[in-house]
Design a protein around this nucleic acid. Structure first.
Lengths: 157, 157
DNA sequence: GACATTCCATTTGCGCACTAACAATTGAGT
DNA sequence: ACTCAATTGTTAGTGCGCAAATGGAATGTC
């Protein structure tokens, strides 16, 4: 074993004594489970999305396809990104020619963002893959469980 | 409105035509819901953990408190971090004096990592906050729903 | 008109999280 | 003994995600 000043004798199988502290098991904590579920989904996404887009980039372009041009910050709110994050995402998408932006004539603060022709084409081509990614993520669950999960996650968000 | 070459007329209320593409609503996708739930939990964690630790840092020290000293990569596996990620986390924790590491006498590749006295004290003091964070995250759910959520997330991970 | 408030976009800094490549070590097979 | 594969730890690079600070612009009230 060789405990050389590092660590305690872990009170794992501890019967009675020294277990004064409330027991805390990382693997039972909601945050830890959420992080792991997220990681698995991220892996499935990267594997199956079929183009070189990250989850957040896909969120941005697919939401733009839903709504048409909107201001940068508003797009951030619709995709659950703060102003600093959406800026980086938009910059990278614009660099790749999927998005273009221009000033809003009616509001000097706003930067209107919209898909380019290439961006629209990519969204159209990628929607089936995105649906397949969600399907693959949910494979371990039955139809009832999927509905339940969605409802529960919505309550949490 | 002023559509100046940006975006399409979004087929939102589209009755029949032009809706050839399968409908895709970002807000219904599991990955998007997972990300938002994660974000809310992260905010609750940062607010309530009571010390200057991130979620992953807390995962590392609390798991070390559970198990006692282990190798760096093994700790990473137990906390769902890859080798590159756990290294950064360990480095920052060691810099703060919460963790110390030494070579494994039996395996020249391994780096044994364990809590310092300060690290153990911090874990003891923080466990109640961590439990409160999980509780606060789950506030929108009933007891039955919480059990269901945990079971579903475990199936996904 | 002057003012505070609010909103928008940007920038900097920190910390995860992953990929890819690399060197050192170990252990098992031959 | 020697090769080979696997494991361990490290580094570099890219991309989210947030906080905090800045500056410009719109909106409201006095």
């Amino acid at each position: 074993m060789s405990r050389v000043g590092l660590g305690t004798a872990a009170p794992l199988a501890g019967a009675t004594a020294a277990a004064a502290a409330p027991t805390y098991r990382l693997d039972d904590q909601t945050g830890f489970l959420l992080r792991q579920a997220n990681q698995r989904h991220a892996a499935i996404f990267a594997e199956g999305i079929g183009c070189d887009l990250t989850q957040t980039q896909w969120a941005a372009v697919s939401k733009l396809a839903e709504t048409g041009p909107v201001s940068q910050n508003r797009l951030g709110r619709m995709t659950a990104m703060d102003a600093a994050t959406i800026k980086g995402v938009i910059d990278r998408l614009r660099l790749r020619g999927l998005i273009e932006s221009r000033a809003d004539r009616n509001d000097g603060r706003r930067l209107l963002v919209g898909l380019t022709e290439a961006g629209r084409a990519l969204v159209t081509a990628t929607v089936p893959h995105a649906l397949a990614v969600t399907e693959a993520t949910l494979v371990p669950l039955t139809a009832d469980e999927r509905r339940m999960l969605a409802a529960l996650l919505r309550k949490l968000a």
